[in-house]
Design a protein around this nucleic acid. Structure first.
Lengths: 192, 192
DNA sequence: TTCATTTTGTGACGATAGTCACATTATTCC
DNA sequence: GGAATAATGTGACTATCGTCACAAAATGAA
């Protein structure tokens, strides 16, 4: 098994135990994918959802709202980059996923993922647990947004997800935090 | 089958088809529960998670952040009121669920729910699909928060979830929207 | 029904974030 | 390496929101 495969396996198993055979089934439907910076993993208006287990780089998820790009998630190594609405609904996506740096990882097409769910209840359970985790995180993020003012949001992210502060371009991070880019620039200056 | 049971069945089936036998298994572990206004469905610090399928009334989910109650969700009829973090993690909850009006519905204990998942992959799938739906909604809510200013958030909720505007006390709604209660009071006045 | 309590409304004011304009750095790509 | 392009920084100003204090209204309990 390659290093990256081991990382993938550990990540999966962390959600739910898989047999070797099951893990191999998973690997089989996976395709190693490389993205250049600014390349799309998903383009709004298109229907090509899937999941990328990231082994290198960063993927950003954004949506155009009132002509502005609003970033709602960033995915780093060992994350499953996905857009849940189009994955779940079979509709074209209103959001886009783009490589913020060169990135690579294991890609699974939606159709293959669904087959996997049919094949074994283990995968279904893994999926459920992963979703529980993601929903829990998303709730945390939401209450952070509603209860903290911009500067405290910055400190919160610095503490809980310092990679984002280090690696995400300021303007994208600003939209993610719900502030103007100038405001984030000033917060950052004050926090030195 | 009673009226409320029919509503429950329709709601479940909307996520994933169940056989009559499966639905009966579900019903069996369910206990009809009534809550008086201000009664807790879950108390922070306690470990008693479960899900309430609401047939009447409203449940609110909140968390104390810097001595303030921050409401993060409201559940109405046909919703599954739950606190995903404690459901998924087996830890005591940092959040509380409280009846905002008198409320009632079908209650399922976490342990019974897990047994159900073991019993049949249908339930696991239902759970997965429900979670996908919830996560998708939560993402929508998050981007609404980050991209709209308070007055537009109010209009958004008025359009997409008018029941909340009508039925949730202003101060709770304000924390949910991430604004001071005075601000929401003024927004409401302007919007008449 | 009445009194106590809780919730909501409102004015004044200060703090803070947003906007616009432009300067300064970084980055990209020949 | 250097020009073009993109991203970030910064000042000035404005709009908006939060806070505090208190009034009014609604709700709940006896």
């Amino acid at each position: 098994m390659t290093d990256t495969e081991t990382i993938l396996k550990n990540t999966l198993v962390n959600f739910h135990k898989l047999t070797d055979a099951e893990f191999n089934d998973f690997l089989k439907i996976t395709k190693f994918k490389k993205l250049k910076k600014k390349e799309f993993l998903l383009e709004s208006g298109h229907y090509n959802p899937g999941i990328l287990f990231i082994t290198k780089g960063i993927i950003g998820l954004y949506e155009i709202i009132n002509t502005k790009e609003v970033y709602t998630s960033f995915f780093l190594s060992s994350d499953f980059a996905s857009e849940i609405t189009s994955l779940a609904s079979q509709k074209t996506s209103t959001k886009s996923m783009i490589a913020i740096t060169d990135a690579e990882g294991f890609y699974i097409k939606r159709s293959d993922l669904l087959q996997l769910y049919d094949k074994s209840a283990s995968f279904e359970r893994l999926g459920r647990k992963l979703l529980e985790h993601l929903l829990s995180e998303q709730h945390k993020f939401t209450s952070m947004l509603t209860s903290l003012k911009p500067e405290d949001r910055y400190k919160y992210i610095l503490k809980n997800n310092p990679e984002l502060i280090k690696r995400i371009p300021l303007q994208y991070l600003a939209s993610y935090m719900g502030v103007a880019r100038e405001t984030l620039s000033r917060i950052r200056k004050r926090s030195l």
